[in-house]
Design a protein around this nucleic acid. Structure first.
Lengths: 129, 129, 129, 129
DNA sequence: GTGGTCTAGACCACG
DNA sequence: GTGGTCTAGACCACC
């Protein structure tokens, strides 16, 4: 389902949070559907349940899931999650735009790169990797 | 010259690296111009020279500066640095694009947001927030 | 009659206890009147009878109801319950007062806030929020 | 400095958070003053450093302290903390007021109790306990 | 020295 | 079975 990268400098629980959040934003995890249990996901990832627990706690704090003691964890309102995700992406985009500007890129150059990088184009190009 | 943010979770030396790299990408630090000495910069930032030293080492590893024993540190080939910076930005842009696509954003929506976020536009529009 | 909040971190049985206790303190459940049977309330709330059973046990321990084997559960002496509830509230009030004092609030400020927060006032004032 | 209560049903780390937050709201911990280190406080309280660590993480998330890797943890802007604390107290007061109202208390009764419970009065009365 | 993460195991309350 | 807390000990990066 998801994979953790030992070379990634970020803590494991944070990688789990990001991967799972992405799956929800993509719509791969439907609203109200049950998350894998803390223990089972921990076994799958070969990490201690404690670490998964921490990731789930973070996800709940961010409003991505709700955890119910004795019943399990469930993904929360998907529409809100997608909205949050899109806002986050636009914020990152704003940041990258000012950095591009300071790096001396022209607006047209940026938009062009932007245009050609959109995934639907990539599928047409069929590049390796 | 540059300022350290105590609330930033990243290590201090990394903040220094990023700030200095940005100054080079912007062109604020000209090619071959001498970097401030480790000790003077450390005094300016009120950090231990050890930390600045580490930042300089990282900058040299990244190819942003060259250190010459007994003479000091100098900013390296600016054009190459800018090129590197722009490539890095495009890579990040590609990543953001696929995530936006997966989050259900339309290409037009993305490009529009992109267009309006470009810094020079923002200064011109001056909309009420 | 009462509703369970899935997002409430407290255990379900505790929510049931609180809701029922409130109904008694309000006077909505008259003295000696029969409580709904464990099974019927469980069906109403869509929880397992086990959970309601636990709530009733807690209510009996607190002196809010008396259970008579083979006959059912009945609400206990209402006057005493109300008195208990009021004492509990005053105790909480005392705690809040010392904390407010330590937080640097003036007595007048506290009493004023107190005055304006009384429910009957709120309905009368109807200020724009 | 602070004491944890084994009979308190709340988790230990939460008790620590509350106690420390209170000390800051009271002004007992001055702005920018260093918090005890995770390990030393853990030793004082006879709990594992992990538990104190969690409490500190929560305090940082709430904006009460800032933790700097390799340097220690420091109490944040005291004025803002006090303001937050006072708002929290007023919120609790509002809650308790509606409960008192529902419990059949008269507004005058509530305000009177309120008035006599203010700590400055207590010091005059010099009651035991 | 500091804060932060992780492990391996245990216990608890809940449903 | 579930989520949640805690322990005892380890390791890491940073200053």
């Amino acid at each position: 389902m998801i994979l953790i990268d030992g070379r990634d400098p970020r803590p494991i629980y944070e990688q789990i949070v990001e991967k799972l959040a992405e799956l929800m934003v993509c719509g791969a995890l439907a609203e109200n559907s049950p998350m894998p249990s803390v223990r089972s996901l921990a076994a799958d990832l070969s990490v201690t349940p404690n670490t998964v627990q921490r990731a789930y706690a973070e996800l709940e704090r961010l409003g991505y899931i709700v955890s119910i003691r004795g019943k399990g964890s469930f993904v929360a309102d998907t529409a809100a999650i997608r909205r949050l995700g899109q806002e986050k992406i636009l914020a990152e985009l704003a940041d990258i735009a000012v950095r591009a500007s300071r790096a001396g890129m022209e607006k047209e150059q940026f938009l062009a790169g932007e245009d050609s990088l959109w995934p639907e184009n990539n599928t047409v190009r069929e590049e390796a990797q």
